[in-house]
Write a protein that binds this DNA or RNA. Structure first.
Lengths: 335, 335
DNA sequence: ATGAAAGCGCTAACAA
DNA sequence: TTGTTAGCGCTTTCAT
């Protein structure tokens, strides 16, 4: 494997000093045109690439940020990443992605790795296990080290730094209102693990909408499942157990799955809304009414806040940005 | 923003030399226990993190690889990334992800960035535009620089390095045979852009299966769409135009979409198979028979080949690994 | 117009 | 047992 060309290589080859080469490459006026040309030519020919590691070492700024998400297979998280990537690249930053698989250990090791690699800042959505165990020391450590952190979606307030969240409570509220406006009164709620912060807000919104409409809350209509991915049978059991006209699901996988189980059971008059407006919602049969969380916007926003903080000398007080969702109405609430 | 703790900081604070600190941290036998303890304690307290940039500079090995994919929203690509990540981490490598959005320019800039960041190697699946324009100079340059590249899925033979591909031809062949075994003879094919390499193999497999079964090929049953994401109307037009009993789709989005349009048109006796076994296939209604490309295996395989090459001193001849797909039968081919 | 030297954080060979 | 030094690739200040 060939070695990469360095300033020194160019310098020795051309019999000039390293600093002359460095200056030539930046087109410094200090250097004569001839020399510059020689250097440029040689550099091009040998595919010279500045070593950003060396630069980072020198400047103690890596122009490198990390994004850590719980699950790369979820549309919402990849959307956010796309947003971060787009904004960061445009500002000359590179982004590294870490995937926790919803595990605390992976979250720790990812943070560790990114830190050692001198990322200038971190964007992060908590793993499910982190939230479950309330284990935030590794994140508090980030505060102590002084590296800026922007959290999104699944956030923990006790950790310093900016936050971008979706108005989960209000989104659920509006979704349930949507059902009610269509004349539905018996409304269910299907959620994953109870400890996830966003889930808590969503359930509150659900309850508030019912209360505000004078509908009594029936806890038996609320179903928690222990994992993100569950068997059809569990949903079937729920649908058999309860007597509902509409149901709000906490993510699009559950929503689409409910739709299908429902169909198989032959109860097609049930309205369904799901959180996340991804391919699943868009292409499901029937198409699913979905709550669009605007993942890319969230990504851009977090990246913007982070870079602002990285590049600012002064201390900025912590900000929390709330992104309004949009209800995208499709067939699943039209019958 | 606090500065990060360095060896030097520890050394001055403790009135020892930098190398003493360095050795203590690696638990070198050269150093006295007392000193070690002092150093360890101080390091812990001040959240010392070795600066991997400095290490990379020193060793000219960054333990860092890059993965560049065309579209993060596709299940197949995120699966591959998960596989790469899993294997690489276990080998002590970090992985940076680049997203080209199927654009040549983004592919170039991603490669550039990764190179400057001294990645030790690159894993890559070509952008659609790169394949369309046959523009491979930026990739050939990688060969000249001597940085190892492993391509997967959408690959170009003229570029040196290992490759991991799916047996696209045979997969399509088996899918079509599956239809034929179920008594179907009029079989359609829905594809995206014609220039994508995997698409070409799939169409060949489709044709070969028909030929081998003595069914005449009707080019009018083969439909190319200009983009990955298309309107329902285009599919409807196709379904209205042709007279088929089954259809093979080049990805799961198209397959699920076809299923739905079909359903809306009231022609439920059409069998559908799609490439990629992701959430869409699994949760569609009805569940979709899908060709599982084993993305995570592919990811692990590419990472393994790449790291082997990075760490090997000797030249290894180029290898091409072919991953066999699995046909996952679900409802969409059971009627 | 060009070059020498210091320093970013770290390791390792060599001294003491 | 501990310390000194050189060097990884680069920029920048200060000579020359």
């Amino acid at each position: 494997m060939k070695k990469k060309t360095t300033l020194k290589d160019i310098a020795t080859a051309l019999n000039v000093s390293i600093s002359t080469v460095s200056k030539s490459l930046k087109d410094s006026p200090e250097i004569g045109q001839e020399t510059k040309d020689k250097v440029l030519a040689y550099a091009k020919e040998h595919h010279y690439q500045p070593n950003l590691m060396a630069l980072a070492l020198k400047n103690s700024l890596s122009k490198h940020i990390g994004v850590i998400v719980p699950d790369l297979r979820y549309f919402f998280f990849t959307s956010v990443i796309r947003g971060v990537d787009a904004y960061a690249n445009q500002r000359g930053y590179h982004v590294s992605i870490g995937n926790t698989e919803d595990l605390l250990e992976n979250e720790k090791s990812n943070i560790d790795f990114l830190l050692r690699n001198q990322v200038d800042g971190l964007i992060l959505s908590l793993s499910s296990e982190t939230e479950l165990k309330n284990s935030f020391d590794h994140l508090k450590a980030l505060n102590e080290v002084g590296i800026p952190v922007v959290q999104f979606d699944r956030v923990e307030d006790s950790i310093k730094g900016d936050k971008v969240v979706v108005d989960d409570l209000d989104s659920a509220y509006r979704a349930v209102k949507h059902f009610i406006n269509k004349g539905k009164k018996k409304i269910g709620f299907i959620s994953t693990e109870e400890h996830i912060s966003v889930g808590r807000y969503r359930i509150e919104g659900y309850k508030k909408a019912l209360k505000d409409s004078g509908i009594e809350i029936d806890e038996s209509l609320i179903q928690y499942y222990p994992a993100m991915i569950i068997k059809d049978e569990l949903i079937r059991a729920y649908l058999e157990r309860v007597d509902i006209e509409a149901v709000l699901c906490v993510n699009e996988v559950l929503a689409v799955q409910t739709l299908r189980v429902m169909h198989e059971m032959g109860i097609p008059k049930l309205m369904v809304i799901g959180f996340t407006n991804g391919y699943l919602s868009e292409y499901s049969n029937p198409p699913l009414t979905a709550i669009d969380q605007h993942g890319e916007d969230i990504g851009r926003k977090t990246a913007q806040m982070l870079i602002e903080r990285i590049e600012s000398k002064r201390d900025i007080p912590d900000r929390t940005e709330i992104v309004r969702t949009t209800l995208i109405e499709r067939e699943s609430t039209k019958l």
